Amino acid sequence: MEYVVFFMILFLSAIFLKSKKQIDQINKLNNLLFIKKDPGSYVKALDKILERKQSPKNIIINVLQKTTGLFYMGKFDEVINILTNDLKNVPKNWEPIYYQNLILSLYFKGENQKAHENMKKAKSMFEEFKNNNYYTEMIEIVYAVSDYFNGKKNKDYFSELCKNGANDYRKAMGHYFLGLIFKSENNKGESVAQFNLTAELGKGSFLEELSRKNS
Rank of each mutant, 00 (worst) to 15 (best):
F11E: 12
F11Y: 15
S13I: 09
L17F: 15
I26W: 06
L33T: 03
K37H: 10
D38A: 03
G40H: 10
A45F: 15
I49T: 10
L50R: 02
R52G: 09
R52H: 08
Q54A: 11
N58F: 12
V63H: 06
V63A: 04
K66C: 03
G69T: 01
L70N: 07
L70P: 04
L70H: 11
M73K: 14
M73H: 04
M73N: 11
G74D: 07
F76Y: 04
F76G: 04
K88P: 00
V90L: 12
N93C: 10
E95M: 15
I97N: 13
Q100L: 10
L102Q: 01
L104G: 04
S105K: 05
L106V: 08
F108G: 07
K109P: 02
Q113D: 12
K114Y: 07
K114G: 05
H116C: 06
E117D: 15
K120F: 09
K121C: 07
K123M: 09
K130R: 13
N131G: 06
N132Q: 14
Y134L: 15
E137V: 07
I139G: 05
I139W: 03
I141A: 05
Y143G: 12
K152T: 08
N154D: 15
K155L: 14
D156V: 07
N164A: 03
L178M: 08
I181D: 05
F182M: 01
S184D: 13
K188A: 01
E190S: 02
E190T: 02
S191M: 04
Q194N: 13
F195C: 00
L197C: 11
E200V: 14
L201Q: 03
K203S: 14
E208F: 02
R212E: 14
S215N: 11
